[in-house]
Amino acid sequence: MFEARLVQSAILKKVLEAIKDLLTEATFDCSDSGIQLQAMDNAHVSLVSLNLRSDGFDKYRCDRNLSMGMNLGNMTKIMKCAGAEDTVTMKAQDNADVVAFMFESKNQEKVSDYEMKLMNLDQEHLGIPETDYSCIVKMPSQEFARICRDLSQFGESMAISCTKEGVKFSSAGDIGSANIKLAQTANVDAEEEAVVIEMQEPVSLTFACRYLNSFTKATPLSAQVQLSMSADVPLVVEYKIGELGHIRYYLAPKIED
């Protein structure tokens, strides 16, 4: 028996928004420790890794490990039926071929039950090694989304260069070029508005804008985003999901042949 309850269904809606641009279907692996998802986009350029800890749920029970393959378009249709203030409960029996979603309004005046058929998906788990990154940038997630959107007008790729002075985002194309420099913030009142750089070595990497823009669909989940970079390895873009967990996107860089 699997059962996971979140008082704020809005969190699950946002998680779904954050992955459905990149993935059409995915397997949710449920265990005693929580729910995990790891999947690549169709082109195998990026990887989404979602971790929702069991202790972050308002109620969580998972007697046996369970892998639930879901079509994310269909899951989105169902989650759209939940009111923003509703509580959501996901339930499945052991070895079930369906997952149930129950939405309850405040005071249980309205209770809605939906069942969705599960799918058997071939899943390939990649082994992501522990990495000491050369540069870690923490910045407001809305600022990062804005920069990705603005720079994608200039070219298909953008370079992210990090030194201890700051982080520079640049792009160039037919219409011209763009450069945005962010300095580390000296002192800010709100922690979430800070730009913080931890640098061991300067790094400059080039990435496809399209994927970065897809990652920024996670912006509503967190006020801050963390970018981890080392030379010639995938970028990690991480959004914390409150006390519940995190979503990480890995993006392969463009490298000189």
Binding site: V233, Y250, K254
Partner: peptide, 14 residues
């Protein structure tokens, strides 16, 4: 000219 690498190139499957 830079080439787009894929995720497999960096992380082997388990």
């Amino acid at each position: 000219k830079k080439r787009q690498f894929n995720i497999h190139h960096f992380y082997l499957g388990q």
